[in-house]
Amino acid sequence: MTAVANDTDTSRPRAAARPRILANGMSRIRYEVKTYFRSPDAVFFTFLFPVIMLGIFTSAFSSSGDIVPARGEAGVSVGAYYLPGLVAAGLLLSGVQNLAIEIAGEKSNGTLKRLGGTPLSPVSYFIGKIGQVFVTGTLQVALLLVVARVVFGIALPTEPEVWLRFAWVFVLGITTSALLGIALSALPRSGRSASAVILPVVLVLQFISGVYLQFYLLPDWMQNIASVFPLKWMAQGMRSVFLPDSFAKLEVHDSWELGWIALVLLGWLVVGLVLSRITFRWIRKDG
């Protein structure tokens, strides 16, 4: 084959490839969302989990009175206080926990091997996964907020600029979480061990990052460790949305630190992107 023939051979499919990658990505999103809602594990441990936790917190502490930012100031109910943490936990579960376990399973049960034998680009596959996380995460937070408002009577913010802030924290958080999930899926050696490897990581993060425990009550060293990881910043961002501004003084630096939230989450997004790109393989070639 001559060099000229070679050129035309490779450039033509490549020019046509980009819309194809996008179209396949969209088709993957539909497929992935359907798969998600047909998997009882995913629906229970990822999708409904924050709602269930909200129910437990609200009921368990219903008689313990409001949480106040300072003595004598107006406070919020325990349920209202925990809501932002659980919204953040939803981001982590939908992204990190869901994808890390799901992809590790797909690796070991042959799903990825089959896909690797088709003209599906890994980019389309990633679009499908991130899209699945985005769709299910959005539905999850919508459900959580509706339940919080309707069932538990928790007041939600009304100012448009606060909802704008919610939007960027949510989008940044869910994207970072999805990419970290893809990256972490390389860790478990098999699909069967995936839950055992991933769940403790996710659980510990939730405890030290202010999801189940009030962050301002944690010792400094624990707060410092948590500050390295993204969940603490997602939770802080969500507190800035759902709690009154008077609660800002309970934060480590007496402020919501929105700039830092954006910076740290963006940093982890890049880390997730790079790690995903480096570690992802359809199959372990010589395993």
Binding site: K34, G105, R114, G117
Partner: peptide, 22 residues
Amino acid sequence: STLAWKAKLGIVLQSTAEAGTM
């Protein structure tokens, strides 16, 4: 391999254990 090349192949692997939710 390229995607254009994979488009010309059909692969039936030895049996797999996929979840089969579809």
